[in-house]
């Protein structure tokens, strides 16, 4: 009997040790530097508040941590969309002026791997900027660092919240350097394929309400890219007047 108990205690300790190693995995580092920060091309900066209550609407299955907003919005409870959220939010330019709005659909990715430090979300943005045109952004986001640095500490906090300063890129692909893929739709962006990076800046997180002091920033590089070869290909400047 004591050998069985030793085995079970050992298994528990082994499982706990692995969890600790994965949580503090030194090979998973914060991604604070955007690959687009060194670009010579023109960039478009768009920012938004990640708090659900600051969005025009935010909806999910209605049972997740973040409550839909407004309260009576249709919820995504059907099995095929239960792990999906939709957000419509106002977007602001680099000077803080209203620039347009964006629709973001996010779905938990089946490629999520906790062993690799990847909590992946497949998301797309449908963006309309009245004075410039429209964009479609495809990206895979990795929320591992966000969860490790903000969400877990919030749960461990006696006040069930987290306060601090955290900045990190959440875009994880599909670009070779961890960039999102952008397809221009209409207006200035018509017919152009570009790249982008989305970053989150967090100051406060509540277990009850989710991100309450978190803002997002999308940086779009206005330079034509060949999609198949992504960053490895020669780039061409965007034609004037397009």
């Amino acid at each position: 009997m004591k050998y069985l108990a030793a085995l079970l205690v050992g298994m528990f300790c082994g499982a706990a040790a692995l969890a600790v190693v994965l949580y503090y995995n030194p090979f998973v580092v914060s991604n604070n530097l955007s690959p687009l920060s060194v670009t010579d091309s023109e960039v478009v900066h768009l920012s938004y508040s990640a708090a659900a209550s600051d969005s025009f609407i935010y909806t999910n299955d209605g049972e997740s941590q973040i409550s839909p907003h407004p309260a009576k919005v249709l919820q995504l409870w059907e099995p095929t969309v239960r792990q999906t959220s939709a957000r419509v939010t106002q977007l602001f330019d680099g000077r803080g002026s209203a620039a347009g709005f964006g629709v973001k659909f996010s779905s938990a990715s089946e490629r999520t791997s906790l062993l690799d430090g990847e909590i992946l979300v497949d998301s797309v943005w449908h963006i309309y900027l009245p004075e410039r045109g429209s964009l479609f952004i495809e990206q895979t986001e990795n929320y591992w660092n966000y969860a490790r640095d903000i969400v877990v500490p919030a749960y461990r906090s006696s006040g069930n919240n987290w306060r601090g300063i955290w900045l990190g890129n959440i875009t994880h692909g599909p670009g070779a350097l961890g960039t999102a893929w952008v397809a221009g739709g209409n207006g200035q962006f018509a017919g152009i394929d570009m790249e982008a990076v989305e970053a989150l800046s967090a100051k406060a997180y509540s277990v009850a309400d989710g991100p309450v002091g978190v803002s997002g920033e999308i940086t779009v590089e206005l330079q034509r890219r060949e999609r198949a070869q992504s960053l490895s290909s020669e780039v061409q400047p965007v034609p004037q007047g397009q």
Partner: peptide, 21 residues
């Protein structure tokens, strides 16, 4: 009993690792 405990640790690591994979 120490050997059993160590075997349990290794088994726990392997089981959780396999489950996550």
């Amino acid at each position: 009993m120490i050997k059993t405990f160590i075997a349990g640790v290794l088994l726990g690591v392997a089981a959780v690792g396999a489950a996550l994979y």
